[in-house]
């Protein structure tokens, strides 16, 4: 009744519900919900119109997460900065091409960073360094800079993702992480692991579907 009353005043019902869930200590509450995504989408639209303030806000909001991603993939500060720089330049120039019906704003920028990093990784082909990173890639418990991040927005969601990753089978997780972070193709992963390509693909697919299932269960 209260939510209905407040909803009439213009506050989204879902956000009110989320507030109640947060108040009662429901840890599965997603910090980046639809309202959050709508804000991000609005920022991207403003960027598409050449709004530099929106671009700066967007950078402040996402750069710790995106730089963290780039660093994990490149394992090198300079390269990670190059990736973030190229990604932000791409976002500035291509913001008009963003389609919110196909993905969330975060998914859009995360995949841009991933693709830029993969381009760099594949261009350099630093096989030995990759090998080392692959061995140590499962740093799910690592908290390199969680507390110093400018924007704690994603902290809870990060915990949720790590928790979900820890619940899928080790071989699926290994294949998924290699696919996402290492820049290796599925064929290269198969060769790396000495496993048939079909098996690698199946592990990745099942791992993704299992992640999806875990996310949906939480929501």
């Amino acid at each position: 009744m209260i939510t209905a009353h407040v909803a009439k005043k213009g506050i989204p019902r879902k956000r009110i519900k989320n507030c109640f869930r947060f108040l009662i200590g429901d840890l599965t509450y997603k910090p980046v919900d639809e309202a959050e995504d709508q804000y991000n989408v609005d920022l991207v639209r403003r960027i598409a119109q050449g709004d530099q303030v929106a671009f700066a806000l967007f950078y402040d909001r996402f750069s710790p997460v995106l730089y963290g991603m780039a660093f994990r993939m490149m394992n090198n500060r300079g390269d990670a900065e190059d990736v973030l720089q190229e990604s932000m330049a791409y976002i500035w120039r291509k913001a008009h091409a963003f389609d919110s019906s196909r993905r969330s704003a975060f998914a859009w920028v995360a995949m841009i960073v991933r693709n830029k990093a993969i381009d760099k990784l594949r261009a350099r082909r630093r096989g030995e360094r990759l090998q080392e990173r692959v061995k140590g890639s499962s740093d799910l418990s690592s908290d390199r800079d969680d507390t110093s991040a400018l924007e704690p927005l994603f902290r809870e969601q990060r915990g949720r993702v790590r928790s979900a990753l820890s619940q899928i089978s080790p071989d699926q997780r290994e294949a998924l992480e290699l696919s996402y972070f290492s820049g290796l193709t599925h064929e290269e992963i198969a060769a790396q692991l000495g496993t048939p390509l079909g098996t690698v693909k199946a592990r990745i697919r099942r791992g993704v579907l299992r992640l999806r299932q875990l996310f949906q269960r939480e929501v």
Partner: peptide, 14 residues
Amino acid sequence: DIASMGLAASPINP
């Protein structure tokens, strides 16, 4: 869902 895997990486301030 796949994109959110990027959050598994620790955030770092550039």
